[in-house]
Write a protein that binds this DNA or RNA. Structure first.
Lengths: 106, 106
DNA sequence: CTGGATCCACAATGATACTG
DNA sequence: CAGTATCATTGTGGATCCAG
């Protein structure tokens, strides 16, 4: 269930950015290559619903909205760190395993 | 990319079982509730391709096939552990956040 | 027992247009 | 700026049938 919730590309990338600094909606979109308006909206809403991110609107014209990570979100980001480390440490090994497999089995 | 590869339900559950002991194809299916033949096959093949699991066939009649985790697979499982711990530690907190959100915003 | 091949339904996402 | 609504398309997984 936890995986269903957090294990998608946009969620992890978004959380990763918000760990460093609070961002506005379109700032986030500019930072994350390929993040559509729809996915940004959807992802942020889900993150907010789960208490991982807060949404703060300022009554400017036009409106300004800031997204910031919560302590809970930060703790998730920390739990994600070993996985990120594993990925960067072993990406080459996986690539080699794939080549080997593709050369043999196919 | 790493997430795209490993972050699905069946992959994580499969890896989680294989960490403890090697399993045959249908054993695995029996252990994991809801795992269809297709997904079992697909998941195991992908895991093997990436060098996370090995497949060993025995020339019995009918054929016996055993799947076992590799050292690489084991290291991934370890990197996944903090995440699993986070999930079980905070599942209630998330549930509460959802209730709060749904009560307010909707 | 261990899968491969197909068909199909539905979920997920991108593109586009529009709004307060 | 910060989204919502809708449509079109693709992806994903389940069900089913078949085979060595």
């Amino acid at each position: 269930m936890a995986l269903d919730r957090i294990a998608d590309k946009w969620t992890v990338l978004t959380l990763g950015l918000l760990v460093e600094r609070r961002l506005r909606f379109n700032q986030l979109r500019r930072e994350i290559e390929g993040l559509s308006q729809k996915m940004a909206s959807q992802t942020l809403k889900a993150l907010e619903r789960d208490g991982l991110v807060t949404r703060t609107a300022f009554a400017t014209v036009p409106v300004t909205v800031e997204y910031a990570i919560t302590p809970l979100g930060r703790s998730l980001a920390q739990a994600l760190a070993p996985l990120a480390r594993w990925a960067s440490d072993h990406i080459n090994e996986i690539a080699r395993a794939r080549e080997r497999y593709d050369r043999t089995a196919r």
